[in-house]
Amino acid sequence: MSMTALSVPPIEREDVHEFDDDRFHPGRVCVVTGGASGIGRAVVLAAAVNGLTVLATDVDEAGLAETIEHAERLAVADRVETVAADLEDDAALEAITDAARERGNVSYLANVAGLQHVAPLESFPLSAYDRIQRVMLRAPFVLTRHLWEDLEANDGCVGNMASVHGHYVTSDKVAYNTVKFGIRGLTQSIAAEGDGDVRAFSVSTGYVKTPLVTEQIPETAAQRGLEVDEVIEDVMLGQARTGEMMTPLEVANLFLFGFSGLASHLNGGDLLFDDGMTLTYE
């Protein structure tokens, strides 16, 4: 597999799974972080196609504009609003909350935003560690806290992007590994305190065809003394029972399933879609 094999065609409306759920309507708002690319963008589009009003947020303003262009192509742009915001900034988190409430009954929160830094533990930059913690673990907690009363009033649900790295770890990714275990703990805490009024779930996948993954391949190759193709085939897919990575839309469909009535008994649980990566061996 080469880097070109990691490209993903644009999402088409017919490829989005549409759920027969009377709670999926424009009066309900779904907040999505990381909405400028990858899985976050796919969740934005899938939620809009399913009839929800979506507030997409990201630090990448240009990427958010591209998300709107995709929404226009799918004829759902009227359901998507964007707010450019840095999840490390507490004032920005409050602004996201206020903007979501202005658009309707906040019922769903998808914490998808992610970043990566590859380095050995003994030299891992503290600034990178702190940023990953703030964006990928602290911000989901703060947004959930800010929106708690809304979610409680609207039979709401929080979906958190976890990972196989929230089940087991690989080297040189100490910050990412730590937050992914942490996001599963946050998910279970939300479920415990939601007391049936606020549900929560996490989604754990292996490697997905996103910029976050493709951008780390050269760095991982350099760290391990491998060629790019070797990283893809041996490191990323070596333990999986598949020769193909998931697409962002496949993950987005899982988020919409988790928000839907079909998942009414999914509370605190983790949707592990890893192609056998963590639970099988040769």
Rank of each mutant, 00 (worst) to 15 (best):
I132Q: 08
P211D: 07
E282T: 09
G34A: 10
T53W: 05
Y108A: 01
G243D: 13
H17Y: 07
Y168M: 13
V158Q: 01
E66Y: 05
R41S: 12
R13H: 00
A175N: 06
L147T: 12
A92L: 11
C157E: 06
V118L: 07
G269L: 00
N105S: 12
D90S: 11
V54A: 01
A42M: 12
V158L: 02
V203R: 03
Q239E: 13
P26D: 01
A113L: 05
L52P: 00
P248M: 12
D274L: 12
Q239T: 11
I96N: 03
L151P: 06
V59C: 07
R23D: 13
R79Y: 08
Y207V: 01
L249Y: 03
V174Y: 02
A85I: 08
T178H: 01
V80T: 08
L64Q: 05
T67C: 11
S7K: 13
D274G: 07
A99D: 15
A192C: 04
T4G: 00
V43T: 12
A92V: 12
T220F: 10
K209M: 13
G35M: 05
D172H: 12
P9Y: 04
A47F: 07
S204Y: 05
R138T: 13
R101S: 10
S127V: 11
E149M: 10
G261I: 14
I96Q: 03
A36K: 08
E215T: 15
S260Y: 15
S37T: 13
L126Q: 06
A222E: 15
I217M: 05
M246L: 14
V213I: 08
R224F: 14
N50P: 01
F257T: 12
G159T: 05
D22Q: 10
L115K: 03
V142Q: 12
E18V: 03
M1H: 10
V118P: 00
D21R: 06
L186I: 10
P248Y: 09
A46V: 09
D229H: 10
T220G: 03
S260K: 14
L249N: 05
E81T: 14
